[in-house]
Amino acid sequence: MEARREVGRVSRRAVLRVLGLLGVSAAAAPFLAGAPGVAVGQGNLGALQPEEKVDATMQRLFGGRPIKDGSSVIKMELPLIAENGSVVPITVEVQSPMTPASYVKNIYIISDKNRRPLNARFSLTPDMGAASIGANLRLGETTNVRAIAELNDGALLMAKREVKVTVGGCGG
């Protein structure tokens, strides 16, 4: 009985010590973040795309599935030289039928040199009539931009183009 109480006391002390440490770090955090008033400790950093090399992204998204060269069917339109990396317009058009039997299921846009390479994933349906998507990207530096189309039968097609970026526009 006595021993059990002792155990309880020790663990409570440990808990208090941990709480004390948390208190200190929470007080210091606003200075570290440089933005007082921001709720620290409930961030969503872990939920963002992980920081990784583009090979790791490709492995994570597609596993070891073979990716065919789709440069003849995927039409990418984006500037050769982007003066401002924070707004780089891109359109990706996949020349494919869009019928319930055969359509483009997903289009991924991936920038090799961005810290978090996946820019966006679009899930398409046959109702769209054509597989054509446009968006504005942020590019950190001169990089290859890949557009990968996943057809409804699971085949993967890829096209890529290099964009020269004069001023980077991506801190993340």
Partner: peptide, 23 residues
């Protein structure tokens, strides 16, 4: 009826612009 869904990240520009087709 849902025709398009996109997962976007912060490597999309401020004031995001998207275009798409539908029939």
């Amino acid at each position: 009826r849902e025709i398009l869904e996109a997962e976007t990240t912060q490597s999309i520009s401020e004031n995001p612009f998207f275009s798409f087709t539908f029939k």
